[in-house]
C-alpha cells in the first residue's frame, strides 16, 4: 500500500470515531478502567518483587532471647554467636530499643501507649553475616543455643514474599485477561458499528480493486487510537495514584521498599501503551474478517 494513501485513511478513521461518539467513549472508558487496574497490578507486582529481592540480599539475622535468660548469660551468648563462622558483627537490641525501632518504622512515636503499656518484644541479638551465603548456616547453628527462642532472617520472609508475588501474578494475570477480553469486545463492537455503517463503501472498495490493506487500515488505526487513548488515561491515573501512595507509604510504613516513580515510569509506560495498542489491534481484527474475504 502506498504511504500517500494515509491522506485518505486518516480522515476516515477520525470521521468514524466521531460518528460513533458514544461507542467510542464507551470503548475508551473500558480500556481505561481495564488498563488502570492492570497497571496498578503491574506496579504492585514489581514492588513486591523488589521487596523480595531486597530481603534476599539482607545478611542480617534476628535471634530473640528467651524471657527467662539470666543477665549473666547475655555476654557469653554474645561471644558464642560472634564465634560462629561467617558472623561479621553482633549487636544487642533490648526490647525497649526494639519497640522504638518498630515505632520509628511505622511513624508512630508512642507505640507503647498504643499497645496498652505492654511491650511484647523480647531482647534480641541482631547478627550480621559476612555474606548472604552464610545466613542459613548461622541460623542453623543459632537454633542449637538454648537461650534463643526464635530466629528470624530474610529467607523465610523472602519465601513468603515470593509466594505472595506468585499469587499476585496469577491473580493479576487472570484479572488482566478478563479486563483485556472486555476491552477487546468493546473495541470490536465499536469498530463493528463503523464497519456496518461503511459496509457499502467497503464493498465498493472491494469491487473497484482496493487491496485488503487499504480497506483494513482505517479500522486498524481506529482500534489503535482507541487503545492508545485508553492507555494514556489509565497511565495518567495509575501514576498519579502511585505518586500519592508513595507519600503515604513513606510516612506510615517506611520499612517497605517502594520503588520511586523515576524507577518505574519507563517500564510502566511501555507496559500500558503496549497493552493499549495490542488490545486496540486485536479489537479491530475480528469485525473485518468477514468483509475481506475476496
Amino acid at each position: 500500500m502506498k504511504m500517500k494513501s494515509f491522506r485518505y485513511i486518516f480522515p476516515q478513521t477520525f470521521k468514524s470515531m466521531l460518528a460513533n461518539g458514544w461507542m467510542t467513549f464507551a470503548a475508551v472508558m473500558t480500556i481505561t478502567i481495564s488498563l488502570f487496574l492492570c497497571t496498578l497490578f503491574w506496579l504492585l507486582v514489581i514492588n513486591v518483587d523488589a521487596n523480595a529481592t531486597a530481603l534476599e540480599e539482607d545478611v542480617r539475622i534476628s535471634a530473640y532471647i528467651k524471657e527467662d535468660t539470666q543477665d549473666y548469660s547475655y555476654d557469653r551468648l554474645y561471644y558464642d554467636i560472634l564465634a560462629i563462622e561467617g558472623v561479621e558483627a553482633v549487636e544487642y537490641i533490648s526490647r525497649e530499643d526494639g519497640l522504638k525501632n518498630i515505632a520509628g518504622r511505622f511513624g508512630n512515636t508512642d507505640l507503647l501507649a498504643a499497645m496498652g503499656g505492654v511491650n511484647p518484644l523480647p531482647d534480641c541479638y541482631s547478627i550480621t553475616a559476612e555474606s548472604k551465603d552464610h545466613v542459613a548456616s548461622i541460623a542453623k547453628k543459632l537454633e542449637s543455643f538454648t537461650e534463643i527462642d526464635d530466629i528470624r532472617y530474610g529467607e523465610e520472609t523472602v519465601d513468603r514474599l515470593f509466594a505472595l508475588t506468585d499469587t499476585l501474578r496469577i491473580g493479576g494475570l487472570i484479572l488482566m485477561l478478563l479486563m483485556a477480553l472486555a476491552a477487546v469486545v468493546l473495541i470490536s463492537m465499536s469498530i463493528r458499528l463503523t464497519v456496518m455503517a461503511r459496509k457499502k463503501e467497503i464493498m465498493v472498495m472491494k469491487w473497484t480493486g482496493a487491496t485488503n490493506a487499504f480497506i483494513r487500515w482505517p479500522f486498524i488505526l481506529e482500534g489503535l487510537f482507541l487503545g492508545l487513548m485508553g492507555a494514556v488515561l489509565a497511565l495518567g491515573l495509575a501514576l498519579v495514584c502511585y505518586h500519592y501512595a508513595l507519600g503515604y507509604i513513606a510516612q506510615y510504613v517506611s520499612f517497605l521498599v517502594v520503588l520511586p516513580l523515576s524507577a518505574v515510569w519507563q517500564t510502566t509506560v511501555l507496559f500500558a501503551l503496549g497493552a493499549g495498542l495490542l488490545l486496540g489491534m486485536l479489537g479491530s481484527f475480528f469485525p473485518l474478517a468477514r468483509f475481506l474475504d475476496v
Binding site: 502506498k2 494513501s5 485518505y8 465498493v204 473497484t208 480493486g209 482496493a210
Partner: peptide
Amino acid sequence: AFALKAVE
C-alpha cells in the same frame, strides 16, 4: 473519486 482513491 472514491473508486480512484481505492486503487490509490
